[in-house]
């Protein structure tokens, strides 16, 4: 069973979101997602300053055998990307919820976060996928 920290929000595409005090949201991929992909060899991050709409493909995570889009979970402007992933994409595997974060985005509308799953709902969602 993969790890699902309580304090984050989740999407059906297995991204996690964490709203910081400054109103910016940090985004990464869940433990379940990194496990399914295998050891990452490359992360194509978006550029800071670019605006994405909810559902846009904004980053790509690649392992040897798979490549998967990260869909922007919320409309807004990218404020920062995790530069460490450029040389160490495997941080996403070893620390998906901390050192392996992918980008930070300033949402146009914070209330849109209410649409997302909390940890409990995501765990139920994962359990359904197993069946």
């Amino acid at each position: 069973m993969s790890e699902v920290p309580d304090n984050f929000l989740y999407t059906k595409d297995h991204e996690w979101l964490d709203l910081d005090d400054d109103g910016v949201v940090t985004v990464g991929i869940s433990d379940h997602a990194q496990e399914a992909l295998g050891e990452l060899v490359f992360v194509e991050a978006p550029q800071a300053g670019v605006i994405f709409a909810n559902g846009d493909a904004c980053a790509v995570v690649e392992s040897v055998k798979a490549a998967s889009d990260i869909y922007c979970p919320i409309t807004g402007e990218i404020t920062e990307v995790n530069a460490a992933l450029e040389d160490e994409p495997e941080l996403v595997n070893s620390s998906p919820y901390e050192a392996g974060w992918v980008f930070r985005i300033r949402p146009d509308d914070v209330t849109a976060l209410n649409e997302l799953m909390d940890a409990e709902a995501y765990e139920t969602f994962l359990a359904e996928l197993e069946d």
Partner: peptide, 12 residues
């Protein structure tokens, strides 16, 4: 770098 290729990325 096969993740770029059609047998993995298909339509992308």
């Amino acid at each position: 770098l096969q993740a770029r290729e059609q047998h993995i990325r298909r339509s992308k």
